[in-house]
Design a binder for these strands. Structure first.
Lengths: 83, 83
DNA sequence: TCCATATATCGGGAAAAGTCGATATATTTG
DNA sequence: CAAATATATCGACTTTTCCCGATATATGGA
């Protein structure tokens, strides 16, 4: 999922109709591609959010998730320096 | 354990007597510090070895483990570029 | 060779993570 | 407000991971 969210335009073409990608990708799109149930994907995304790897933004009935690049940068640096 | 192995001299003073640190730290020393059973620590180290994060060297009845810094560098870069 | 020491492997039980269906909450529309 | 749609939460079940004791293997010394 995290890799998918690097290139939303390529990986989630179905979203073009009702919204752009400025806020990220909505749960339903991710769920369809993942092939898991809605509840599983929703929970997974909320875990990624709590961990800081994605940011969530509610817009109307949809919740959009996008990557937080800073978190990956920080993790990369952490492995370099602390681990 | 991986952090401990960054500074063997500081974290495993008990090993000074019978060997230096040129090959790393032996399983018994790590086990004592970890507070887990011998079998658990042995298995854990072998997993880390298969994953490439440590290197093992058998010297007599002892097996010494030391960090493979290249693996951490590679993981850090992987997170930066691919993830 | 026999014993002591160090490490590795095996089998199983406990803990954690993954996944689901059912249901609750939130939002939009008629 | 009622229905439809999107997402979140809950409880249970399955799978995986963690960790142990028991045992096997390897090495060195009497």
């Amino acid at each position: 999922m995290l890799e998918w969210l690097k290139e939303p335009e390529i990986n989630f073409p179905g979203q073009l109709e009702h919204a752009g990608f400025e806020h990220g990708v909505c749960v339903g799109q991710i769920q369809a591609k993942a092939g898991l149930t809605q509840s599983t994907v929703s929970e997974y995304l909320s875990i990624l959010q709590r961990a800081g790897f994605v940011e969530a933004k509610r817009v109307g009935q949809w919740t959009y998730y996008k990557r937080n690049e800073g978190a990956f940068e920080a993790l990369s640096k952490l492995i370099q320096s602390n681990l």
